[in-house]
Amino acid sequence: MNRWYPEVLQEFRIVTLFDLLLEYLDKGKIQLDKSIHAVPTGYHDPCNYGRKSLKAFGKAYFEDGRAVIRACCDDVRELNPNRNGAYCCGAGAGAWAMPYSDERVYHGRIKARQIAESGAELIVAPCHTCRDQIMKSLNHEFDLGIEVKYILELVADSLILDEK
């Protein structure tokens, strides 16, 4: 955007989800209740937000998501490996679509095992494809017994709302 339409940026501010959430948290615009998600929580590093962003644009979003979920949960577990070396969910690049249902389950078996071994009961997946894959596909095929949320979902569910 900077390169092609700089004048647009003078009028509009473009931020990522992470930037926005972190801004809200920093400025105290939202309050969060940690007790709502008092279960072992794991963070899934999506390929696009992490390593692909790093390779293509030079910036990766690893810590931002973690900062957000740390504000929402006490028991945060790291899946190993993580960040740049994280395991892909297996359903990206079109694999979520039919007719690749068998393939993506097979691709995602390593992620499923990783989640199972981590002991996490809640997985936060910022990317919608990842969240779908883990929640609808891996969770069922591999009987993981976990809950999966988008990061926005997590924050929304943790909000302390003023009684109106």
């Binding site: 190993n80 490996p81 070396g85 390593i110 990783q114 071994e117 002991g119």
Partner: peptide, 16 residues
């Protein structure tokens, strides 16, 4: 080998 994982909870290490 691309990386090392923990195998279960017994501190063993798994290589794929």
């Amino acid at each position: 080998v691309n990386g090392v994982e923990e195998d279960g909870t017994c501190d063993d290490l798994r290589l794929s």
